[in-house]
Design a protein around this nucleic acid. Structure first.
Lengths: 357, 357
DNA sequence: GTGAAAGCGCTAACAA
DNA sequence: TTGTTAGCGCTTTCAC
């Protein structure tokens, strides 16, 4: 039988609550054939008379038979299941990743166990134990921020393991993260292309790797555009900080920027708010670009916010594909893989609304 | 053996990648006893010499033995697993519910399969089939909005089923939702208690049950405070709508409110934005209250937003408790259970920041 | 106290 | 072409 589960018994009756689900033996009895025959008929294996095959299938359908994956799993040592542990409280970042992952794996008949570690090593360990007990075929770890190092050494798990939007100390670990540097380059290059000359960068705390990488991309783009002006302001990942940064940025009129590249959409909102308080026109006087492309934020500002999209859903799909490969036996080299970001252009930076690769 | 899984083999070695996980037979062999003895020793069942028990436990630990839940499940017909199907794309509402549910069930050693139906009946059906194949012990359905009726008749599933933040046509279905009417009453009562006399309600589309219920609560509170003024404005669930509603609300100065109860925090943000554009002081001239108590929104406004909290996490926990009861064999009467909301008081309505039951 | 063996539902190799 | 049977890893009853 192939690795894909047998066709579900669509349209058959469903056992009512409390009823024991019909087993393959029930089908065999009802169809008047042996268990082996039923298995073959249902899985399309071996040679069987078409007649028998059809008859068995009919009976199975009539009984509402659904093979017991647990038994299958036990037999062939594959549970058609992967575990996912998030320390994000299922927040904004984990969500789209999980969605992509789940969509990808669902095609293979694999379900995802989601567990919330809530940054608690004890809970995390407990979840790992449980998942191992369920003999998951693979594991995915996600963190709140891309450079969070999972608290426990889980790189020696007995199953293929992937880090998504997270990295591990272990050089053999496979990590999938958005390419922050490229994302920042993209954003800033777009601004320079539009003729902006004095681009500031208002971002998160410097201790985040993402912050350092985005800063690098920012500086790269400035350099390759031959611009002298550069200014980076670090602060918390909050809307308030964006608002306050404007005060700082505009304290000295002589160093006033003509564009602001923000480290997150939240910060960008604060920035836009601050600019509006000073009646500075967006994008005419100042262009603003955000990071995350969080719909709710990006489309609520006036004008709407141009923002870097980390393609998290795509990241999740990619994770699914790679995990499947590993489950099938491939042994990819460890290391950090960075997937490209996209720039979604809206009104806040001038130019035509579009999408930039 | 009790229903709770045996203590995990903390601290034992873990089988390396690709290695077959040790089975109970391996332990028996290594310990020089029979399989049955190992089972008894590990599960604390039957009578065994303390010595033997300890010895077996040690060996199991040394081997990194972890019982195979699949085999256990197969044997006792319980998979220690529940499925959760969301059509919310794992959005803001499903997340905290899932978190509460998972936290509650994790205590019982149960894991949660999360599936995203994405409002696609075909995908939903496929997910249900898969979960049934995995013989989940229970199912939880969640929707984007509390009054979404799941597309397929799933109330006749062969396992205990619960609807959370969702309802079903089936009168036998058990549905858990936040008490919208009470939440609205809470918010408006707070405003009247603070002396507001002209309270308007800016909310979502009338076709949502939540909108109608909250309106009812709003009107109730007005009535019991003996207030005449009432005004309800319906629109989309967007920030823009909140902003636009202000224009509508202030078109005629004679009908100007002194407080606005919003149907969501998003709308409230738009409202606050609109008020600020007109330089109307919050809360001095107008008090504002939101709904959802979405941190990111409620704490980003100036002043911070007073808002109704639906206690979704608690809703999830409650769901877990009830589902467990059903799994254990209880048959609760069907119907809609409404859980109380809380009011989180911040600066936007005057008065002391606090929490109101 | 401990071991042996049946069986949970399914698959696959082998017999008929 | 179909039936029989030995497991997959575990629990549990019943001998010893």
């Amino acid at each position: 039988m192939s690795d894909v589960p047998p066709p579900p018994s669509r349209g058959g009756r469903r056992p009512k609550f409390g009823e024991r689900a019909p087993t393959i033996r029930d089908v065999a009895l009802a169809a008047g054939v042996s268990i082996g025959t039923v298995s073959k008929a249902l899985n399309g294996q071996g040679r069987l008379r078409d007649e028998t095959r059809a008859h068995v299938r009919d009976t199975a359908l009539k009984l509402g038979f659904r093979p017991n994956d647990l038994a299958q799993a036990l037999h062939r040592g594959k549970s058609l299941t992967v575990g996912m542990i998030s320390s994000d409280s299922f927040g904004r970042f984990t969500m789209p990743i999980m969605e992509g992952l789940e969509a990808c794996l669902a095609d293979e008949g694999i379900s995802v166990f989601l567990c919330n570690a809530a940054d608690d090593p004890v809970r995390e360990q407990r979840h790992i134990e449980h998942l191992m007990g369920k003999r998951v075929d693979g594991m995915v770890f996600t963190a709140r921020r891309a450079d969070h190092k999972p608290s426990i050494d889980m790189s020696r798990l007995p199953v293929p393991t992937l880090f998504v939007y997270a990295t591990s100390d272990d050089p053999n670990a496979v990590c999938l993260v958005p390419d922050d540097q490229q994302g920042a380059r993209l954003a800033v290059a777009h601004l320079t292309r539009l003729g902006r000359k004095r681009i500031a960068h208002v971002t998160g705390p410097e201790r985040f790797e993402a912050v350092r990488l985005r800063r690098a991309g920012y500086l790269e783009s400035l350099a390759s555009a031959g611009l002298e002006y550069s200014r980076v302001l670090y602060g918390p990942w909050s809307e308030d900080w964006g608002h306050d940064a404007i005060a700082e940025l505009f304290a000295d009129p002589s160093t006033r920027p003509d564009a602001i590249f923000c480290g997150s959409d939240l910060i960008a909102r604060g920035v836009i708010d601050g600019l509006r308080e000073r009646s500075i026109a967006i994008p005419d006087e100042i262009a603003v670009v955000g990071y995350d492309n969080w719909d709710l934020m990006a489309t609520a500002t006036r004008p709407r916010l141009t923002s870097v999209d980390m393609n998290l859903n795509q990241l999740g799909r990619e994770a699914g594909t790679r995990l499947m490969a590993m489950i099938r036996g491939e042994h990819p080299g460890g290391g950090i893989v960075r997937l490209p970001c996209t720039l979604v252009v809206r009104g806040s930076c001038g130019g035509q609304p579009t999408q930039v690769q």
